[in-house]
Design a protein around this nucleic acid. Structure first.
Lengths: 338, 338
DNA sequence: AACTGGCACTCGTATGCGCCGAGTGCCAAA
DNA sequence: TTTGGCACTCGGCGCATACGAGTGCCAGTT
């Protein structure tokens, strides 16, 4: 087990390195943090920390930098979450309050997160899985062409075009619309399949084909749209990444474009509570030199989606975590209101 | 006026520089292109071209690189548009044919363009301005809460939440829905304002407030949504930009996040025909070292939106223009079909 | 008049060398 | 266990040198 002071040394190293972006040596440490011991002592502690794998030297006779394991310890044991100040909180709320629709809420959230953390922000659109159906609308576009519009309680709208096997009258359509809504409105997505199972039974034989086509399209939409969408912002902040640009930045940009990858990563977010994945803890190779701070958000108690930021492992964890948590909280509020 | 051979020399310089990314000298030129003259002659021509401002030397005693003016001449007079090969065209069509809805069409287009050109692709969502209304739907969510859903002929769906000044019955809602659609369905957006002007007249006095609220929200949607949306992809290709990364890449990333800026740039696209804006021809400062190739696309004759790519001024113009044109053409087809 | 070969010159890049200093590990003393 | 001292390492920086690609100019040729 590491002594109390050694933990303090580790904390000091992380803080200094995050600030200066340069390997930190024993002398500088004792000067900037009053640890009450001499550089020589700190050197011994550093040697011990290095043995344990918490810090490393880029080259012999250079200062130390934290390893992924070091950051992990720092995040778990040594650092708290730095809360936002009152003015910051107010600014967040004001900014988000100006949103006019769901797209706008997400867009503003991304901007805000990117600005607050000066890193890359990722926000997942509120998921359909946990949401409920607010309304299903059917529109007749042509005799044998119907548009299905699905509206969720999070304000999301999905539409699908349906080619019917047979012409479908306005009255049948109205009938189907009414029955459909009476069954599924207000219900959870996951419950919908059972609820509509025998819906076709009440219809004229010649309409049954169309009805079941509509139903299966509805079910498809529910499933397919769980390929959820993301919004990303603040990529310009990647330029603050490090000195060795091209090699570091390229795989990150590539990973960011692979929404599947990001969704998977966000999906691993523990719920409730914030998840911090550091460096090689990220399965995706391109993100091995980044850390991801993510958290679920949602109206009411349940998380309907995730949001987070992607930054260099050398990031200000307490500050970033504070910003992520605060933003998630306020977005949840906004969603609950609308 | 420049002699024929000098133009050939300029063309050769552009081609070589685009290929090698290095300043090109007289000797290398004569070796790689059989101009039929000696390096010394080429040197004279180069001196002349430099006097005219078409090429420049990064440093004394280095080779020449084209200036923005040189690229301009190249694009206008010396290079054609390199058409896609048949297999490429087939691949484009196949890839786009797989799209399931409008979002997917746009997403695939972006991916495709980025891949084909190995640059950053920008695709504007089909604009509302030129489109027509397919259907307007009104849903009652609560006694005094209505959701407005607008469906366009390009498959785009916009929704708005409306708080009514007074409760609004289902029958009134159905009435309004019917009247609204009979007036605006199939009409152009620009015509809608006149068409609905006196629509409130036919309603009960207590409903008029709500009706006019709904109408004004509809009009707002038509206007507001002309703040059109964009999709961007291939940002990882920015890493192939040049050697002097951070300084070049940062402002570009910033500009790409400012959708307003991009929309303005795309808006300047001459219609019909492809627009190429080279280096300083771009008003936005961050894009002074990039070129933008853009073109309108749309179903039928009219362009409903623009798409294009952003790359270094040192880009393969004929190839890029070919790809942009081909993709625009096929996206137009896809839109026309759906 | 246009083209060509030759030549002196420029200058950016690569290479090698020496110095400096931050930082280390180790050891003996407190 | 802590501390001061000391020899050692090694990356970064400055400088001088050599190299070579490329140029401009000029005189000679076609």
């Amino acid at each position: 087990m590491l002594s109390e002071r050694r933990l303090q040394v580790l904390r000091a190293i992380v803080q200094d390195y995050v600030g200066t972006e340069e390997p930190v040596g024993s002398k500088a440490l004792t000067e900037r943090h009053n640890l009450g011991v001499s550089p020589a002592t700190v050197r011994n502690d550093m040697a011990a920390l290095e043995d344990e794998g918490y810090i490393a030297q880029p080259h012999t006779s250079a200062g130390r930098i934290p390893t992924d394991k070091g950051y992990r310890l720092f995040v778990d044991k040594l650092a708290g979450v730095k809360p936002m100040t009152a003015p910051e909180r107010r600014a967040i709320q004001n900014f988000l309050d100006g949103a006019v629709d769901l797209d706008d809420v997400v867009a503003r959230t991304v901007r805000l997160l990117a600005q607050l953390t000066r890193q890359v922000a990722v926000v997942q659109y509120p998921s359909l899985t946990r949401s409920t159906v607010r309304h299903v609308e059917l529109l007749s576009l042509a005799p044998a062409r119907v548009m299905l519009v699905l509206i969720t309680d999070t304000g999301r709208v999905e539409q699908r075009m349906i080619d019917c096997p047979a012409p479908f009258g306005e009255t049948s359509l109205a009938d189907l619309r009414a029955r459909l809504n009476s069954r599924v409105a207000g219900r959870r997505f996951t419950d919908v399949p059972q609820l509509v199972e025998d819906l076709a039974d009440g219809f004229d034989p010649e309409d049954r084909g169309t009805v079941s086509t509509v139903l299966s399209t509805l079910l498809e939409t529910l499933v397919e749209e769980n390929e959820e969408r993301l919004m990303i912002g603040g990529t310009a902040n990647l330029t603050r990444f490090g000195h060795d640009f091209p090699l570091t930045i390229r795989p990150v940009l590539e990973a960011l474009e692979e929404q599947v990858v990001l969704l998977k990563l966000l999906g691993e977010t523990q719920d409730p509570g914030m998840t911090v994945r550091i460096g090689h803890e990220n399965a995706h190779e391109g993100l091995n030199s980044t850390s991801i701070v993510s958290v679920g958000y949602g109206s009411g108690g349940e998380a309907v989606a995730k949001l987070g930021v992607v930054g260099p492992t050398r990031m200000d964890y307490p500050g970033t975590m504070g910003a992520v948590r605060a933003v998630a909280r306020y977005v949840g509020q906004i969603l609950a209101e609308s």
